[in-house]
Design a binder for these strands. Structure first.
Lengths: 113, 113
DNA sequence: GCCCTGTACTATGCAAAACAAAGTACCAAG
DNA sequence: CTTGGTACTTTGTTTTGCATAGTACAGGGC
């Protein structure tokens, strides 16, 4: 991956990470590192400067809630879960994502399909 | 579409419009209005404040070239076409896009697949 | 010729979000 | 107590889509 396309990959991530986080949390609550690991597992690399402010924004927007929990062997953790508003938003973002992908792929060059 | 998801749609467009433009131009040269119409035809709404600077950035980056041509009944038009560098970039962005979509969709909740 | 309308392009500033980097805090082990 | 690892917070930068204002050209009507 060249520098040009890694920059593009970062721009592609904009607007989609919220959907990704909601998808992860739809399986049950998770704390930040879990979320980052789940993203990494599907080759979506996200760093702390992104994930923490994003989780905070979503909490402030009413999409997520969190509880503090003792860690097995380290500092306490913030476990996030979806609110009902978050569930509604997930459904809407699912639709928006599907339409978006469909739109972009409608532009697929004929000669390469 | 709520205001929340239209904002998300705008964020989703970031990083992907370059690929879309290259796809459109892979069918042959086009001027701005053609490009905007092609995008609108697949429900990707892009406004002049976006498209003109973007085309200029791509021209400055060596991805696109342009020529001036008389318009049938209005002011002259800038017809854009891909450079060889643009063709290389298109191939790379195609790969990046496919991987990105695949990554996001790998997070699809099991209960909804 | 002048004015208006429609079309095409340019420039600037704003908003939003990913990222880089620095810092604070907690826990466990030595 | 110190160190290392883990977890979270804060701030500033970069990039790109968007909003807005403006310039320029061509054609038609008066």
């Amino acid at each position: 991956m060249t520098q040009e396309t890694s920059k593009s990959a970062a721009q592609m991530r904009k607007g989609v990470l919220e959907l990704c986080i909601l998808r992860i949390l739809s399986d049950g609550e998770a704390y930040t590192s879990d979320i980052v690991d789940a993203l990494k597992a599907v080759d979506l690399l996200v760093v702390e400067g992104t994930i923490y402010p994003l989780l905070t924004r979503m909490k402030n927007a009413g999409t997520l809630t969190y509880r503090w929990a003792e860690s097995p062997s380290g500092p306490p953790r913030k476990y996030y879960d979806m609110t009902e508003q978050g569930q509604s938003l997930l459904a809407e973002l699912e639709t928006a994502w599907d339409q978006f992908v469909s739109s972009v792929n409608s532009l697929h060059p004929e000669s390469q399909s």
